[in-house]
Amino acid sequence: MSNEELKSVLSGFNPGLTFEESGEWLVANVEPGEFLSLAKQIRNNESLSFDYLFCLTCIDWKTHLTMVYHLTSTSFRHHLVIKSKLDSSRPEIETVSNIWKTADFHEREVAELFGVNFLNHPDLRKLILPDEWSGFPLRKNYEDPVNMIKL
């Protein structure tokens, strides 16, 4: 499905979406509150069937955080990037680990490194860092005078 078709289908699901086409793939910006319903729709819609979440990450823009989901479909081979702006003081977004199981680990990683709270995640314990760790290392304002080496 081409980007234009994707856009029209996606707008049908959620008229509030904004699109960017500057990069390699179509980017859809969605509000965090509407993300879960969009995710379910694009996963289950038969003409889209975005079943492969190949990258899930977060970017700290200092003023806000942005969740980035890279999706593709194993049957149609079209790509979609979903972005969602989160408030950096209280970042919260619904989990998609029940839609794409790979999100389970990726969300746990993002949760401890960026401090994003994934609502309804089944098991949001620390995966990489020690349990007693405080702070979110991949945030731009993170300082650790002991362990960090300035290059």
Binding site: C55, T57, I59, D60, K101, D104, F105, H106, E109
Partner: peptide, 19 residues
């Protein structure tokens, strides 16, 4: 780079281990 994310194959493959 402002931010780099490496999508490593092992991380996703490992998540299927429990299953």
């Amino acid at each position: 780079p402002y931010r780099i994310k490496f999508r490593s194959p092992g991380f996703s493959n490992l998540s299927a281990l429990d299953h």
